[in-house]
Simulated assay, not measured.
Amino acid sequence: MRLSRSLSALLGKSRLLQAALVVGFWLAGETLVRVLGIPLPGGVIGLALMLVLLATHRLETGSVRRGAEWLLADMLLFFIPVALAVVDHRELLGFTGLKILFVILASTAAVMIATALAVDRCFRWRAAHVRDAIASR
């Protein structure tokens, strides 16, 4: 069942209603997670629901595009608590902050290197087994 033409036209004109629709999908996902006990974030479930509706053309992209762009444009507002924490803890701007930054960068690099090595090893293992299978024919 597609959205009615009048509702679709109203959504197409109002950025606020489109943003509310995106938030509504998030809330629906949260509700499903809590009711069904799904071990995933509600936002992921909600956006998956929206993706299904978009893919099946039950929901038009124009019905959410401007609202989603508006939310993304103002995403910095969602990170204000982090900025306030830095202001409250001035030591993060000094040597302590540099140590924390080093740990974050080093751990990120370690994860990336370990992942690359694991993928490379799996790729070589699979290539060797494919070669053995072809040679045994």
Rank of each mutant, 00 (worst) to 15 (best):
L3C: 10
G29H: 07
P81V: 05
R58N: 05
V52W: 13
S4G: 15
P81W: 05
W70I: 00
A19K: 07
F25C: 01
G37F: 08
T108L: 14
L47M: 14
V86H: 03
L71Y: 04
L32Y: 10
A55V: 04
S14L: 00
L17I: 01
S14T: 00
S4D: 13
W70P: 01
L11P: 02
L3P: 05
A116Y: 14
I100F: 13
L10V: 03
R15I: 12
M1F: 13
D120V: 02
L92K: 02
T96W: 07
E91I: 11
V130I: 15
T96F: 10
G46V: 07
D74I: 09
R126K: 11
L11S: 04
A9K: 11
A114L: 14
I104H: 14
V52D: 13
L101S: 14
S14K: 02
S4L: 08
L117Q: 11
V64E: 00
A19R: 11
E30P: 00
L16V: 10
L51A: 15
L101T: 12
V82H: 13
L93G: 12
S6C: 02
R15L: 06
R131G: 04
A85M: 10
T115I: 05
R66S: 10
L84G: 10
D74K: 12
V33D: 04
E60P: 07
C122D: 12
A20S: 10
V86P: 00
E60K: 15
L17K: 01
T108G: 08
R2C: 02
G12A: 11
L77M: 08
V119W: 13
L71H: 03
D132N: 14
T31M: 13
L40A: 15
I100Y: 15
E91M: 08
L77C: 03
G46L: 02
S4N: 06
F79M: 12
D74T: 08
S136L: 08
